[in-house]
Nucleic acid binder design. Structure first.
Lengths: 351, 351
DNA sequence: GCGCGTTCAGAAAGCGCTTTCTGATGTACC
DNA sequence: GGTACATCAGAAAGCGCTTTCTGAACGCGC
C-alpha cells in the first residue's frame, strides 16, 4: 500500500471492503466473494484478499451487509425487566442459544409498560432483526393486542420470525407455553393433600395472562375439591418482591388468617416470606407458603420454598430455537412446558 | 394510491421511503426531511408525507439510515452473565438510561470466556454500535489486554464511545470504578471492630481485577491491624453460587475453622451460607459471614447478609451516561463509586 | 481448427436511506 | 421594475456492501 493510500484511508472512518480490494489488487466483487465464501476464487487471489483484510484489520459494516443482503445477524428480545430473576434465567438460555447461532441479541426491558413493548417491537422491526422474541406475559387488552398485531403481522409477512414465551391470546406466532394452569392446579392438589383447606392467593395484575392462568388453575383445582378461596383472601399487588411483601402484609391485616398461601410467582413469594418474618408469623409452622417458577434463589431461602419448577433456562433455549428454525408451513407451533411440583420446607400440614 | 402501485408494493418486502414519497407526491428528499425534521418543509407537504407514512405504516430501515448517516441508535453491552444478580441489577440501570436516550441495547453474555468477550466487541464494532459498554471485571492478562485494545482503539478512533464498569488496567476508556479495595478494607475494619481476628476469604479467579482488588483490600487492612490470613484460609473457586458453596465446604474440610468468612461477592456468600447450613455450622453464632455488592436478594436471606453495598442500578446508569456524554477532550473520565458497609445479622462478635 | 460450454474475475446495479448541490420561487429593497 | 437574497423542493451523489450480469479465458469434442 502506498503512503498516499495509507493516508487517504486514515481520514476516512473505517477500512472498507473497497480498501481491501484495492490493497489486494482485485475487484470489489472478488473481495466480497472471498470473505463470504460465496463462490470459488482462484487460490492466489484468495490468499491476497485474506492477507490484506488481516493486515488492514478489516471489519465489515454490518449495516451495509444487512442493507445489501437484506438480512441481519441480530434478534430482538423484549422482556419486562432483566433484573427479575425469572427473566434473567430465561435470558440466559436465550443468550446461550443465540451465541450458538452466531446471533447478536438486542434486549429491551419494558418495565411492564405495554406501550413501550410495542414501541420496542417497532424499533426492532426498523433494525430488521431476524427474529423477535416476546419473553413474558401477554396483556389481556383488546387495544394492546390490536396494536401489537399491527406491528407483528407485517413483520412476519416480510419474513420476520416471531416467537413468544407465555400465552399471547390472539397472536398467531410460535410459542413456548409453560403449563401455568396445570402447574397451579397440581400445586393446589399437593397442598390439599397436605391437609390445607384454608387458602389465600397473592396475585399480580389480572391483565397478565400468566397471572390469570395460575390463579384460575389454582382456584379451579380447589373448587374441584370443594374448597373455595374467599375473595378477601385473593390479594392483588405489583408483580415484584415488594408487591409480594405488600400483599402478604395486607392479607395479615385483613385478619382471618389462612393456613396456606400461594404466591403466583416466586419473586412475590420472597416478599411474602419477608413480610411474614417481619410480622412474626412462622413459615411453615403458622402458615405454609408456596410459589411458582423455581427461580434459582428459592432453594437458598429459609425455609426453602415449595414451588412449581419451570425449566427457565431451557425455556429460553427453546423459544430462541423456535425462532431460528424454519418457519412452520401453515400454523404456529406450540411447545408446552410442564411445571413440576417441588415440595420444600416452606409448606407443612396445617396445625 | 393506484391499484398498480399498491400491487407493486405488495411483492416488495417493505414499505420504503420512496413509497411514501411517491404516495405523497413529493420527492424522496422532502419525505426524508419531514420524517427527520431536518429542515423546514411547507406545511401542506408535511401533512401529506405524514399522512402517507401513517397510512402505509412506514418503518424506516435502520440499516439504511445507519449506512447513510453513519451513526446508529444502538449501544452494545458486554457482561459475563445476565443471570447473575449483580449484572442483572446493573443491566437494569443501563437499560433504563438507554431508553431515556432512545437507544436500543445489544446485550452479550460472555459466560466468562475472555475470547468471546473480544469476539463480541468485534461484532458490536461491525454493527457500528454508537457505544460499547464493558460491564464486569477486566482480566489481568497481557494477551487479552492487547487483543482488546486492538479492537477498542480503532473503534474509538473512528468515533466509537467506550465505557467500562470495573477496573481494566491498560484500557484508555471512561470508567465507573467501584471502590473495591477501599470497600473491602472498610469491611475488614468493621469485622475487626466486632472482635474477629481469625479470618478466611472465599475468592474467585485471581485474574479478575475485581477479585484481586477486594482480596487485596481486605487482607491489607487486616495486615495493618497486625492480622494475617493464613494461606489455607484463602479458598479460590468459581465466581458463582456453587463456587461459593464449594469453597465454603472446602474451607470447613481443611479444619482449623476461622471465626469470620469474607466472600468476595454476595453470590458466592449465598453459596457459602448454604454450605454452612448443610454442614450444621450456625451463622453467625459459630461463624460470621460477609459478602460484597448488596445484590437485592441478600436482605431476604436468613440471616440477612452483612455486605458492602454498591449502588448497582445507579452504576449502570452512570456507565451508560458516560458513554452518552460527549467524549472527554483528552483523557478518560473516571467516576468512583464508594461502597457502604451494611451490617446485618450474618455477622456477630466471635464467641 | 472451430464452435461450444465452463469457469471465474470484474463491472455495475442496486439495497433504502441522508445530505449536498442545484434551481425555482418568492420577498425585500433600492 | 430590477437586482440581491432568502427559502425551500427536487435531483443526484453517495454510504459499503451483495449479487447479477458481462465477458475473457480456457478446455473439450468433433
Amino acid at each position: 500500500m502506498t503512503e498516499a493510500a495509507e493516508e487517504q484511508r486514515a481520514d476516512r472512518a473505517y477500512v472498507t471492503l473497497q480498501d481491501v480490494a484495492r490493497d489486494a489488487g482485485v475487484s470489489l466483487a472478488t473481495a466480497s466473494r472471498v470473505l463470504n465464501g460465496t463462490s470459488q476464487v482462484r487460490a492466489d487471489l484468495r490468499e491476497r484478499v485474506l492477507a490484506s483484510a488481516g493486515r488492514l484489520s478489516y471489519t465489515p459494516n454490518a449495516h451495509a451487509q444487512a442493507l445489501a443482503s437484506s438480512s441481519s445477524k441480530s434478534v430482538g428480545v423484549v422482556c419486562h425487566d432483566v433484573s427479575d430473576p425469572y427473566f434473567a434465567a430465561v435470558a440466559r438460555g436465550v443468550m446461550r442459544t443465540a451465541a450458538e447461532h452466531g446471533m447478536l441479541v438486542m434486549l429491551a426491558s419494558t418495565f411492564r409498560d405495554p406501550a413501550r413493548e410495542i414501541e420496542y417491537v417497532a424499533m426492532l422491526r426498523a433494525q430488521r432483526a431476524r427474529a423477535i422474541l416476546l419473553i413474558g406475559s401477554g396483556f389481556e387488552d383488546r387495544d394492546w393486542e390490536r396494536a401489537m398485531a399491527a406491528e407483528l403481522d407485517p413483520y412476519q409477512r416480510t419474513g420476520g420470525r416471531v416467537a413468544v414465551l407465555s400465552r399471547h391470546r390472539s397472536l398467531k406466532v410460535d410459542a413456548v407455553l409453560p403449563q401455568n394452569r396445570e402447574g397451579a392446579a397440581a400445586l393446589a392438589r399437593a397442598l390439599l393433600d397436605l391437609g390445607h383447606r384454608d387458602f389465600a392467593v397473592l396475585t399480580g395484575p389480572h391483565a397478565l395472562t400468566t397471572v390469570s392462568d395460575r390463579l384460575g388453575g389454582f382456584t379451579d383445582a380447589l373448587a374441584d375439591a370443594g374448597v373455595r378461596v374467599p375473595s378477601e383472601h385473593i390479594v392483588e399487588a405489583a408483580f415484584t418482591r415488594d408487591g409480594g411483601y405488600a400483599a402478604a402484609t395486607e392479607l395479615l391485616a385483613r385478619g382471618n388468617r389462612p393456613t396456606c398461601v400461594f404466591a403466583v410467582t416466586d419473586v412475590m413469594a420472597i416478599g411474602a416470606l419477608a413480610a411474614f418474618r417481619d410480622q412474626g408469623v412462622a413459615v411453615p409452622d403458622e402458615i405454609s407458603l408456596a410459589g411458582f417458577d423455581d427461580i434459582p434463589i428459592v432453594r437458598d431461602l429459609t425455609p426453602p420454598l415449595t414451588t412449581v419448577a419451570l425449566p427457565l433456562d431451557a425455556m429460553g433455549e427453546r423459544v430462541m430455537g423456535l425462532a431460528m428454525r424454519e418457519p412452520a408451513a401453515r400454523r404456529s407451533r406450540i411447545e408446552r412446558v410442564a411445571g413440576e411440583i417441588v415440595v420444600r420446607a416452606s409448606t407443612a400440614p396445617p396445625r
